[in-house]
Design a protein around this nucleic acid. Structure first.
Length: 807
RNA sequence: GCCGAGGUGGUGGAAUGGCUUACACGUCGGUCUCAAAAACCGAUGAGGGUGACCUCAUAAGGGUUCAACUCCCUUCCUCGGCACCA
């Protein structure tokens, strides 16, 4: 006999919805818990990734609910974006209609999983009531100088026909379609995220409950590097060539400098020199090489002498200027000082072209300990550059200092004497948010011939998307073709003007939705300050690792901006972060192109949502990858049926042993769910079930098992809860507590080791004294074989656990 | 190259200084049945022994410790981020 999951799941989903059981309002007398899962793009169907993400969150939310917290657990849709436009063209419909249909389908699927969302708080970013506030935030940023328009070379995806942010370019390709990204000269809107770079980096330190790898990725992305800009003078001329270095301690070993082929000074300084032609040929050659080829590290560095010299400002030495492909215009100043003794790239280049070397840092260790890197006085002995720490030599007044110390001293000295400047370089660039698409938030700006760029006034928001834009899929933004949208009067001079036709990147929408959930239908502000004060920050955020940089960085930026506006009083939006692993099939990520997708819907049909939830939590810990296994589903289903059958054989009396196991299970499950160790929580519930089969259970024990299982398989447990006579939803029950007194056992098994090897197990009273324990053990006949009368050197006792006899 | 995560049975995975392999899958055996399925009970790291048992095993090697999957050092491998970043 199999329990009727179809009926049961339908029934309870109906009751939850009818009784509005997951709706919450702030209650100052109760502790709050804001649990958020990354909201989905409404593709219309949920996939296993969603199932995993949302099941993890749902268990945590239901658990906290049973513990008596006010749990905010909202859901919404990240509904703007390109797929809707593509679908509109393909199916001859409108993005608006198509998206809303997808949202409806998706909601049905989410509800079938039994997730405990407060659907009254649902938001969709494509609704004007939401994106109005995108526009409001944008105008605020414009007001504060954080939104600006600038012409520059931007990343352009020729397939998507739109610009991309730096964060959206992955290995030279578009993050969405992988098409090779081109560079295009365009005037675009940017957000000055770089104004927050220090805080964005620094505050990573307070995110103690974020995974290390996410912190590392964010830190890498922001990319702070501290160093000194040093001014080399061009020999015989008034020109200055600034170079950037993080190793200013090696400045006395700089024996040449190198300019990137694209460096604007190159063509200037070679004019009339005998080397001019050769250098121009070289520049031309490099320019035709692809960026990828040029940046691959195994390609030999190439370069030519420019015929010019520069003066090293620390010792007035003349050094030759080279032009080489291993220096990039995009980083630093596009020029470097080369120190072949202490930089491997410079070393290889210098050896290749016969340039001179000078050691300025001496390894402090003995040669045999330094893995073949000799303590070097002479540069001739060097087989490779020494990039480690050591003592300064050949460095004038800095000789004898450790290089770390010298780094600071030299930098300070340079700044004082004006030959250099302490500088910090950042990898992070401003965020390009203009997109040449229709299905996004219109950027609320107006171009007037007279007044220039004029913001739409706040009271005229939202600037709504016109319903009937033409979709051809080519040639610029569809909004540009809608006359009624484009033509507008200038808010300042009332003359004819044009609207901005670009829309915002969708990452803008998702950078603050967690705040909107606090007061989703607020009409006066993007969020109610008091409500946000109660609910925020998000206590637990759950989502995919693919958002480790983009979404999380942008959200942190927005939060800091709102803090500066005085609307909130915390710097970080997400207290704890969990990045769940991917769902694999046959060792590969489930994807349409691989054709290895398992549709959650078919599993729900055949086994029910509870079985799917149980399997996906049991198969692996949340952070690791999960290998899909049809047999595992079968096993999860078997377990539920096994629990179901317990109710047929309930007893009046129960053994003390089972009571002890029950309390142990309560302890373990409570601790494990707290730490998101669902797989071991389920394992211990299985052990309890096995014990019930052995000992038999009373109604009370069974009810506890059901309660402990209820966050994981809620429909199943609601039904059993009701069958056992409860009148209220199990969601309104109280999470069980264990009694520490029950856990105390009067007898314990002590493992006895001889020289660290297990030789014996003895059962003794748990409060036995060490002396009598020793007596019992040493009088054991079996143990005598191992001790063989040898003298006992040590007798280690771990109370209630283990004894180790050292002979 | 730098940074981060990891490497445990046939498989997914437990154990974060104290009995390695919890729980589950798979496999094998038993009960029930005319039979099968389901269900229930049991066995299951490798090697050796008739047997009680013994030896070995947590990527490899070394160290610390009475005791190491766990801590330290060296090396290898897998995954992820950044990168001719000066």
């Amino acid at each position: 006999m199999v329990y009727d999951f179809k009926e049961i799941e339908k029934k309870w989903q109906g009751i939850w919805e009818k009784e509005n059981i997951f709706h919450v309002q702030p209650d100052q007398n109760k502790k709050k818990y804001y649990l958020l899962e990354m909201f989905p793009y409404p593709s219309g169907k949920i996939h296993m990734g969603h199932v995993r993400n949302y099941t993890i969150g749902d268990v945590a939310a239901r658990f906290k609910m049973l513990q008596g917290y006010m749990v905010l657990h909202p859901m919404g849709f990240d509904a703007f974006g390109q797929p809707a436009e593509n679908a509109a063209i393909k199916n001859n419909t409108k993005p608006d209609i198509w998206t809303h249909k997808c949202i409806d389908w998706m909601k049905i699927e989410l509800k079938k999983m039994g997730f405990s969302y407060d659907w009254q708080r649902e938001v969709s970013t494509c609704d004007a009531s939401y994106y109005k506030w995108n526009q409001w935030i944008f105008l605020k940023m414009f007001e504060k100088g954080l939104a600006y328009k600038k012409a520059s070379s931007v990343n352009w995806c020729p397939s998507c026909q739109t610009t991309l942010a730096n964060e959206e370019v992955i290995e030279d390709g578009c993050w969405r379609c992988h098409t090779k990204v081109e560079q295009k000269e365009l005037e675009q809107w940017y957000l000055k995220i770089t104004d927050y770079k220090e805080k964005l980096l620094e505050d990573l330190q307070q995110l103690n409950n974020w995974p290390q790898r996410v912190l590392a990725m964010q830190s890498n992305w922001i990319g702070k590097s501290q160093g000194v800009q040093i001014y080399f003078r061009l020999q015989g001329q008034d020109k200055i060539i600034p170079v950037f270095t993080t190793r200013v301690d090696t400045i006395f070993g700089a024996t040449y400098i190198v300019l990137a082929p694209e460096h604007p000074l190159v063509k200037e300084i070679i004019k009339g020199k005998p080397q001019e032609k050769e250098v121009l040929n070289f520049i031309d050659k490099v320019s035709r090489e692809s960026k990828i080829k040029r940046s691959s590290s195994d390609v030999k560095k190439e370069g030519v002498f420019s015929g010019c010299f520069a003066v090293n400002p620390v010792n007035n030495e003349e050094v030759p200027i080279w032009v080489a492909d291993y220096v990039l215009m995009e980083y630093g100043t596009g020029a470097i000082m080369a120190v072949p003794t202490h930089d491997q790239r410079d070393f290889l280049f210098a050896k290749e072209h016969g340039l001179s070397l000078r050691v300025v840092i001496q390894s402090p260790v003995y040669p045999e300990q330094s893995r073949g890197v000799a303590t070097m006085q002479s540069s001739d002995e060097l087989k490779e550059a020494y990039e480690g720490d050591g003592i300064q030599i050949n460095s004038a007044q800095f000789n004898g200092l450790s290089n770390q110390e010298a780094k600071i001293k030299i930098a300070e000295w340079m700044e004082k004497t004006g030959i250099g400047k302490i500088e910090t370089h950042w990898r992070l660039r401003d965020w390009l948010i203009s997109r040449q698409r229709y299905w996004g938030t219109p950027i609320p700006m107006i171009y007037c011939k007279k007044c220039g760029i004029v913001p739409v006034s706040y009271e005229n928001l939202p600037v709504e998307l016109p319903q009937d834009a033409p979709f051809t899929g080519e040639g610029g933004s569809p909004l540009g073709k809608v006359k009624e949208f484009v033509e507008v009067v200038c808010p300042k001079c009332k003359e004819n003007a044009r609207r901005e036709t670009d829309t915002m990147a969708t990452f803008f929408d998702s950078s603050w939705y967690f705040l909107r959930f606090c007061s989703p239908s607020n009409q006066d502000s993007c969020f109610d300050v008091q409500e946000a004060k109660y609910w925020m920050p998000v206590d637990q955020y759950i989502g995919g690792i693919e958002h480790a940089i983009l979404h999380l960085l942008y959200s942190r930026f927005f939060t800091k901006f709102f803090q500066d506006l005085g609307m909130i009083n915390f710097p970080e939006p997400f207290d704890r972060l969990l990045t769940q692993g991917m769902v694999l099939k046959d060792g590969e990520v489930m994807s349409k192109s691989r054709g290895n997708i398992v549709d959650p819907d078919s599993i729900i049909k055949n086994y029910g949502a509870d079985t799917l939830r149980l399997f996906i939590l049991f198969a692996a810990p949340p952070e690791t990858e999960l290998e899909w296994d049809d047999r595992g589903i079968e096993g999860a289903f078997k377990f539920l049926n096994r629990v179901w059958r317990i109710q047929e054989n309930l007893k009046e009396e129960v053994s003390p042993e089972l009571i002890r196991i029950l309390h142990k299970t309560i302890k373990k499950v409570t601790e494990d769910i707290q730490e998101f160790k669902f797989n071991t929580a389920i394992a211990s519930l299985m052990e309890l079930t096995n014990a019930i089969y052995q000992h038999g259970a009373t109604k009370e024990v069974f009810n506890n098992l059901v309660l402990l299982l209820s966050p994981i398989v809620p429909h199943f447990c609601e039904e059993l809860w009701q069958i056992q006579g409860s009148k209220q939803s199990i969601c309104r029950a109280k999470w069980p507590e264990y009694d520490p007194a029950v856990l105390v056992e009067d007898k314990v098994v002590i493992v006895v080791q001889v020289n660290g090897k297990v030789r014996l197990k003895v059962e003794v009273p748990s409060d036995i004294s060490q002396d009598s324990l020793r007596e019992i053990i040493l009088s054991d006949e079996k143990l005598a074989v191992w001790i063989q009368g040898k003298p006992i050197k040590n007798f280690v006792v771990v109370p209630r656990k283990l004894v180790n006899i050292v002979i």
